[in-house]
């Protein structure tokens, strides 16, 4: 009994200490702003920011902006995920595809893809298509590279024994190579998601058309610092929620894998 009590206390203490400094930082923000240590323009009160988020949620603007940013990021993410995995798997199976994509990949992987933003505006206009494709283009390179590396690292004996058991090429791909490469693919998707968010927000800032990025930049242009800071809070929460959701998906998909045991 005593032992279980101490572990409860230890857990509670751990839980408190793991958020204590965050709470202190938020309190310090409110106190600093109230004490006018810095001007209200540079640092509006946290309470004012929360009130703004609340009124934005009543007017519905919060959900419009957040929904648009999430939709654009996830659509770009899906584009990068689907085509990235397809190209990556083809790279390991077809030498012509490998020969063709290898130099494109080695230049494209480290290059700052965001530089192509004006090109995407020129080609696809200022609306969702351009924003989604820009995010997908920026995020696809790590997915291609990781799927190719994952598929290339699959145990040859697994593939051979599946083939000798009479599996078709499709079955080998779907039931052996894809599951075996899945941990690496998911790691790449976890890199791709923040890229999609970063790029979507920059696209919204440059092209407008609502979304969290556009509303933040508008607020900055009108010197509405409460608006900018409520945008920061909304973007931070959106980012955390999406990234945690992807972690859950990973754990669920890899239930059979030793990393989740």
């Amino acid at each position: 009994m005593a032992a279980s009590k101490t572990t409860i206390w230890a857990r509670l203490l751990h839980a408190v200490s793991s958020v204590a400094s965050l709470v202190v930082a938020l309190l310090a923000w409110e106190i600093l702003a109230r004490a006018h240590v810095v001007s209200a323009f540079l640092l509006p009160r946290l309470s004012d920011v929360l009130v703004r988020i609340f009124t934005d949620s009543l007017s519905g603007q919060l959900f419009v902006d957040t929904g648009l940013t999430v939709w654009r990021s996830l659509a770009g993410f899906a584009f990068a995920g689907v085509f990235g995995v397809l190209i990556g798997l083809m790279l390991t199976r077809n030498w012509l595809v490998r020969w063709f994509f290898d130099p494109i990949l080695s230049v494209g992987l480290p290059a700052p893809k965001i530089a192509f933003l004006p090109v995407f505006i020129l080609w696809f206009g200022l609306f969702d298509t351009a924003k989604i494709l820009m995010a997908g283009f920026a995020a696809i390179f790590p997915v291609i590279a990781a799927s190719a590396a994952g598929a290339a690292g699959v145990d040859k004996f697994l593939v051979w024994s599946a083939r000798s058991a009479g599996a078709s090429e499709r079955q080998v791909l779907g039931e052996i190579i894809l599951p075996a490469a899945l941990p690496e693919i998911l790691t790449a998707l976890q890199v791709a998601l923040p890229i999609c968010l970063i790029v979507t927000i920059v696209s919204e800032m440059t092209m407008g058309g609502d979304g969290l990025g556009a509303s933040m930049l508008n607020a900055a242009r009108f010197a509405d610092s409460v608006g900018v800071f409520s945008g920061i809070v909304e973007v931070a929460i959106t980012g955390i929620v999406l990234i945690k959701l992807l972690e859950l998906v990973r754990r669920r998909l890899l239930r059979w894998h030793q990393e989740t045991q």
Partner: peptide, 26 residues
């Protein structure tokens, strides 16, 4: 660790480009 880690964990997932308007203001 007790001081920095919660802050790092809370801020790390934030898309960094959202800082641009704040930097313009500051």
């Amino acid at each position: 660790r007790t001081i920095i880690n919660p802050l790092v964990q809370a801020i790390y997932p934030m898309p960094k480009s959202a800082l641009i308007p704040v930097m313009i203001m500051w």
